[in-house]
Write a protein that binds this DNA or RNA. Structure first.
Ligand SMILES: NC(=O)c1ccc[n+]([C@@H]2O[C@H](COP(=O)([O-])OP(=O)(O)OC[C@H]3O[C@@H](n4cnc5c(N)ncnc54)[C@H](O)[C@@H]3O)[C@@H](O)[C@H]2O)c1
Ligand SMILES: NC(=O)c1ccc[n+]([C@@H]2O[C@H](COP(=O)([O-])OP(=O)(O)OC[C@H]3O[C@@H](n4cnc5c(N)ncnc54)[C@H](O)[C@@H]3O)[C@@H](O)[C@H]2O)c1
Lengths: 213, 213
DNA sequence: CAAATTTTGTGAAAGGAGTCACAAAATTGA
DNA sequence: TCAATTTTGTGACTCCTTTCACAAAATTTG
């Protein structure tokens, strides 16, 4: 398993394989071939094997892969075998939706804190829909609470004008991962990771495909 | 402008250029070089020129690009110069958030209908936050209303178990574009375009980067 | 007006990612 | 036990994307 640069596309596919394997495991399937898995994920069978080959040998020739083992191995590769502790910052429309997103629970992503800036109708409110309710705190407690609750990922759902400032706070609080939903490109120092999710870029993409087909 | 297959990455970047140019235009900047634009969008200058070259010649040698013209040209390329009429299906947490997403208005994406399945607390409710309020209708009116309101894109925010069925309804209603937020892979016939947005795949990606840096 | 400067557009080179094809390993069955 | 079968892991090949590098075009300056 010597080091090599792993294509980002490979990581995205591993995530898909993982979701497929989860379904298969629940369905009681024990063994799967690269061809079957590829089929389900709409990719090439060699692609599946290549993707896995970056990280080692997981299959048995003539047999395939043990669903349960491969599922665990991929989770280990992705780092999704551990529980990730997250905070949501900006509890408006989207932030509230994320707070009650059930799939985060099923997967290993857990929202353990929520922050907003002052609006009295929000601060102190408790999101009850999740397993454990989360109280919305004032943003000025971010640093303190981030340490206390060992927050590792921050989800930014503030207006775009505030997004970079919030990111800076997260960096200061040593929250190393940021997922930003505001339509602004977030910049973070070396050692931190920020990903932007641009809804309108996705729509622009769709619009292009619709216009040209 | 002879035909060539356009890389999807190019389309994504064009969308980014477009957003940058919008900001520049508002800031009153008149001319921009490929190097400047590249810098802002964190890409290579030759990349900017190559991306544009797929669609024609838009610059003036020795000068650069006229911000306003390039902005318009890119919008024309992307098909985002026209207004796109959208429906949201599944008015729960995420669906409601999308209904009040202001940037859709600023961009040229307009939500003109909302559908849910029966829960009395939702049907008939009106989202007031947008420019024009949108009444939530029962899903069984989808086909009829889609025609009437000339809906071109459907945003699926139902539980994953319902997502494919809803997609089938959209296809039947001849809504050609689908953006699916449920964690299921949507399949549509030739001539339709469906994109899935998997939140946990994005998080898996982040988790991987955090685990390996 | 011509030389110097700027910056585009693009062919060629380099670099990555995906697919093919087959030897190697494991299993099955006679 | 050994041939037939299955399916992995991987080198080689193809295809696609990005970057480089420079001629061509426009502008500016002396
Ligand atoms: N609504 C959507 O469906 C949607 C979709 C995609 C992206 N987005 C983006 O997500 C962000 C939030 O959208 P929204 O519709 O939920 O907006 P919103 O106005 O409903 O919510 C924003 C929240 O952020 C809080 N806030 C503002 N400044 C803050 C700060 N410095 N620190 C902490 N909290 C702060 C506000 O009090 C508010 O509660 C926006 O950037 C938007 O562009 C929204
Ligand atoms: N909440 C989030 O932040 C979030 C984030 C990413 C993805 N998602 C996904 O988006 C989807 C919606 O999430 P949510 O949290 O809003 O769930 P939700 O349960 O709050 O909302 C789902 C809505 O869909 C409606 N519905 C169910 N079946 C329907 C049908 N056949 N036709 C029309 N409407 C129907 C329900 O009545 C409900 O109002 C889920 O698939 C979820 O996995 C949610």
């Amino acid at each position: 398993m010597k080091y090599q640069k792993i294509p980002e596309a490979t990581i995205r596919r591993l995530s898909r394989y993982s979701r497929c394997l989860e379904v298969m495991e629940q369905a009681g399937e024990e063994v799967v071939s690269s061809a079957q898995l590829a089929n389900r994920c709409m990719v090439n069978a060699a692609q599946v094997r290549k993707d896995l080959a970056y990280f080692g040998e997981f299959g048995i020739r003539g047999v395939g892969y043990y669903v349960k083992d491969l599922f665990n191995d991929i989770k280990k590769i992705l780092g999704s075998n551990k529980e990730w502790r997250m905070a949501v910052i900006g509890i408006g429309n989207l932030g509230s939706a994320l707070l009650s997103y059930k799939d985060f629970l099923k997967q290993n992503y857990k929202i353990v804190a929520a922050f907003d800036i002052d609006p009295p109708q929000v601060i102190g409110r408790v999101s009850e829909k999740l397993g454990k309710p989360v109280e919305v705190l004032h943003i000025n407690r971010l640093k303190e609470v981030a340490k206390e609750r060992r927050i590792e990922i921050g989800l930014i759902t503030t207006p775009p004008s505030e997004a970079q400032a919030v990111a800076d706070l997260l960096v200061e609080a040593e929250v190393r991962g940021i997922l930003n939903f505001a339509p602004t490109q977030i910049v973070v120092p070396e050692g931190f990771v920020a990903k932007d999710v641009f809804f309108t870029t996705i729509l622009d993409n769709l619009a292009y495909l619709l216009s040209n087909n």
